[in-house]
């Protein structure tokens, strides 16, 4: 077994374990941290494929930005606020829940697998060239080529993705606005009121009247809330 293969298996194991913990960890903050580790593992696999640029972007965007934003979001959001009063498709689930609940994800996963195999089957696995240290140029991955691709043939998809992100940003802004702020924009009376600080923070409640160390009860509450 070559060293590269060993390293690959180690990285794959880390990524898979982390990914598994993301969906199974009862503490949502830990799930976010596991997600960061999963991204780091994937970046390592990119490095193994000598896709240095992708690995750098993976760390910069996924670990440095996305994980941070998600952790930040978890810390800022009130767990009780996030819990919906009535889960989506409540009636549907109550009627078909028993047997349908495990079947549906399996069905979707199977359909996705079939779709993937169809797509990759068309291209042909054998056509894909193995990208090893020998195959790459001495300068590693060609960064200008990525730039030309992004601003040339793939300009439209890239722009579409940015517009999507921008709309998500604006949507988050609207959702984050509290009634008081909205009233400022509408110009209704009472608009001069000072904004209340965030109603609560998941995991760690910060209230002036409380003790410094929230007790065990609160911890349990958070676990249950997630």
């Amino acid at each position: 077994m070559s060293t590269t293969l060993l390293v690959f298996f180690a990285l794959a194991a880390i990524s898979l374990l982390a990914a598994w913990r993301v969906v199974t960890d009862p503490q949502i903050m830990h799930a976010g941290l596991w997600m960061g580790l999963c991204f780091v593992g994937v970046a390592g696999i990119f490095l193994l494929l000598t896709a240095e640029f992708l690995a750098g972007v993976q760390i910069l965007v996924y670990v440095g930005a996305i994980t941070t934003i998600i952790l930040f979001g978890i810390m800022l959001s009130d767990v009780e606020e996030v819990q919906p009063q009535e889960p989506p498709f409540y009636r549907f689930r109550r009627r078909f829940g028993r047997w349908w609940q495990p079947a549906l994800p399996l069905l979707v996963a199977a359909a996705f697998l079939v779709a993937l195999f169809t797509i990759y089957g068309q291209a042909g696995w054998s056509d894909l060239q193995p990208v090893g240290p020998a195959a790459s140029t001495p300068a590693g991955l060609d960064i200008p080529a990525i730039g030309h691709a992004l601003f040339g043939p793939y300009a439209l998809p890239a722009e579409a993705a940015s517009v999507l992100l921008l709309s998500a940003l604006l949507g988050a802004l609207v959702l984050a606005m509290r009634e008081e702020t909205l009233r400022v924009f509408r110009g209704s009376p009472g608009s001069s009121r000072v904004l209340q600080p965030g109603s609560g923070m998941a995991g760690r409640e910060v209230n002036a009247g409380e003790t410094d160390h929230p007790g065990q009860d609160e911890k349990k509450e958070v676990g249950a809330g997630t």
Partner: peptide
Amino acid sequence: VAAMTGCTVP
């Protein structure tokens, strides 16, 4: 360097 700097935040 930018990627590594970003890892400090988490």
